[in-house]
Simulated assay, not measured.
Amino acid sequence: MRVHIAATAAAVVVLTSAASAAAAPTLVAVGEVAPGGRLEVRATGLKEPFRVQERRGDAWVDRGPVVYGTGKPSRFRAPDRVGRLRLRARGGDGVATPSRDVRVRPLTLAAVGDINLGDGPGAAIERFGAAYPWTSVGPRLKAADLAFGNLECAVSNRGVQQDKTFTFRGRPSSLTALARLSGLDVLNLANNHSGDFGTTALLDTLRGIRANGMQPVGAGSNESQAYRAVVVERLGLKVAFVGFDAIEPFAFRAVGGRPGNAWAFPSRVRSSVRAAAAQADVVIATFHWGIERVFTENASQRALAQTAFAAGATAVIGAHPHVLQPIRRPRPGRLVAYSLGNFVFTPRSAGTERTGILTLKLGAGRVLGDAFAPARIVGSRPILRG
């Protein structure tokens, strides 16, 4: 949900001493941080040096470094637990600021499956308006701290239709409405339809996503950009996304300076996830994989998921089969959703109308919990149950 984007990953807390003549004691803060998230605390009106302290039981315990200099921050990690964090700052003369509470809660990531703005959904948008796909699910997605989906089409008025059985293309106005109404922050393009109208349309799609305040992953204007992680900051956590395609056309892959998507070579999965893990607290690896209309994962999917986890992925999210596949938890703190099925799509066989929103609760380096809100596709748009 883009309204929560901040300039820094750190949750900022400003503690003001009662001794300050400039203003009454106040706290200026986001008020929330994820377990293990970065906190940046500033104090004013204190005798240098000062130090931030955390209340533990009946005692105040020092946190973060000793700070010299008015307005300089103290930076440290929040506890790796959910609850209340009570903080104060204590100056060199023993004078302390009033205490303030920071809520420690999981970061919520909402994830959905295939989104097609052309074909059947495109016709419905033409008839009922660009808001049509999002009337039921938009509020739920916007309620999450972050939202992610697989954009299964090109979005452009240009390009040359490729020689393949199904080609999907949406209007730029539909992407603008998606950005405004869906709550989605990151869109995967590592799939077998992002190149349906050639590299010109792919580049338009990349530009359109960014111009509407979202981030594309899994494709780029060259090979390096296609495999590069997208890092988004929320609640003091850096969340990295990487995307990989394992479904032909193989010709859609980015090579050298040619635009395209990131192919799921195990060696590239390994190196991309490792690079993402080196710069983020949570890594979400997404794959376009599996067999259409098959309700369980295959050995190839399991192997790629294991490669991603071994390289440092926190969660793996899959798409392409057009049906829901199992959500599995291979070990504590890790989760793989092998396929989230269709989302904004036209169902064409039994089971392809079943969909939903997967919500992950995240702390630094681990999945703390998950829930799945089921939905059904009616008229090419998802409708939540209940």
Rank of each mutant, 00 (worst) to 15 (best):
L178A: 10
H193I: 14
F76T: 02
G83Q: 06
V294E: 13
H4F: 15
Q162K: 05
A179D: 00
R234K: 13
L206A: 08
D163N: 14
L235C: 10
F265E: 12
V104P: 13
V316S: 02
L235I: 09
G386M: 03
P266D: 04
V230E: 06
P49Y: 01
N191K: 10
R75L: 15
E48A: 15
N192F: 08
P106G: 05
Y227Q: 05
A24C: 02
A219V: 12
G120E: 12
R100F: 12
V269I: 15
R270F: 00
P382R: 03
F295I: 12
G257H: 04
S174G: 14
H193L: 10
A229H: 01
M1W: 00
S271L: 04
H322A: 09
G149F: 05
F295Y: 06
D101N: 11
R75C: 15
R38T: 15
L368M: 15
S380P: 01
R158K: 15
G290Q: 02
A277P: 08
K361M: 11
N222V: 14
R376G: 04
F265W: 12
R56H: 05
G369R: 09
A111Y: 01
R77E: 12
A313V: 14
S74T: 09
S380D: 15
V66M: 11
Y338G: 06
M214W: 01
L109E: 03
S267A: 15
E297L: 10
V336E: 00
A285Y: 00
A9D: 08
Q215F: 11
A124C: 11
S99V: 11
G91K: 10
F197N: 08
D101R: 05
A364G: 04
F241R: 02
Q279T: 14
N188C: 08
L87T: 11
G120K: 12
I209D: 02
Q53K: 10
Q53H: 09
V367S: 05
G386C: 07
A278P: 07
A143R: 14
L85M: 03
S300I: 15
L368V: 12
R334E: 03
V232Y: 02
A275Q: 07
E292Q: 14
A276S: 09
V155W: 01
T167M: 04
A280I: 08
V217W: 00
P25E: 03
Q306Y: 05
G94I: 06
G118C: 09
F343L: 07
N342P: 11
R258P: 03
T352N: 00
A229T: 13
D281V: 11
G260N: 05
A9S: 15
K164P: 07
L117V: 13
R38V: 15
A143V: 13
R42W: 04
R376D: 13
L202M: 13
P321L: 06
F265M: 07
S271W: 02
I115W: 00
T165L: 14
A303N: 07
S267G: 06
T205I: 12
E48T: 14
R100K: 11
S173C: 05
A262V: 07
V242T: 14
G260Y: 03
V217E: 00
P133L: 08
S221Q: 12
G159W: 04
W263R: 07
R376H: 07
K238Q: 14
L117T: 13
A278G: 11
T355W: 02
K72W: 08
P121M: 13
E152S: 05
